[in-house]
Amino acid sequence: MTDLSMVVQDSWTEAGRHLRIIPRNIEVLIFATIQPIMFIVLFSYVFGGAITAPGFTNYDQFLMPGIFAQSLVFGSAFTGVGLAEDLSKGLVDRLRSLPMSRSAVLIGRTVSDLLRNIFTFTIMVVIAFAIGFRLEGSFAQATLATFVLLLFSYSLSWVQALIGLSVKSVEAANSAGFIWMFPLTFVSSAFVPPETMPGWLEAIANANPFTIVTNASRALYNGMPVGNDVWYSIGWSLALIAVFAGLATRKFGRSTSA
């Protein structure tokens, strides 16, 4: 077997393991889906009246892409928690002692988490439409917007993979995986225009890759000019994957349960 076909086959075996478990652990999926729905409803109805989004038809048109982006980013945390679980159960030691592709363990994990995120995302879109969100651009633009969001989420899965392999427990993976996501997603253009923030915070928000990704998908969903944000978003995602996939794979070769 060539190296590449082994990577593909083993990654699929690993992804298959995770996907098979999802329906047996259905509460996890249900709550992972309820949370973004709650965000959609809460933000839309609670802040919708108070926040104006200049240039947009209404606040929902501004808000929804931000919530999509945030939920997908939060969804990446599954990767770290799942790996920490495998590590604590000793399963990682077993896998590392098998004649399989080592990167397949991480690829299988991140790909299955991506598929899970796509599922959650689909439900979110349906809810968003139900409360009045509309695509104001073309279908092709919406597809590109979705691709940009999913790619960014996938790239953060690799950051989470490194975190999950670096911490000593599942609980720590959970905290360490989530804690930085709040500033990442709130100090951004996701919920309010950064111009309304204090100057120094606005500068941070504008430099935040999450803002760039949000802006790119928001412009595309709303049929607005997007400038170079799509390219910057894809660039950021690919760079994160390149760096963190390398680091996580290296770490995987060394991590053990004890």
């Binding site: 098979r20 478990i21 000793g90 399963l91 077993r94 098998l98 004649p99 004890a258």
Partner: peptide, 24 residues
């Protein structure tokens, strides 16, 4: 190893078949 390194949410048969696939 010291921990029974099994996938808890798979059945016994699925666990064995899963590792068999990783042995190709």
């Amino acid at each position: 190893g010291q921990y029974a390194a099994v996938e808890e949410r798979l059945t016994a048969r699925e666990n064995i078949e899963y590792i068999a696939r990783l042995f190709h």
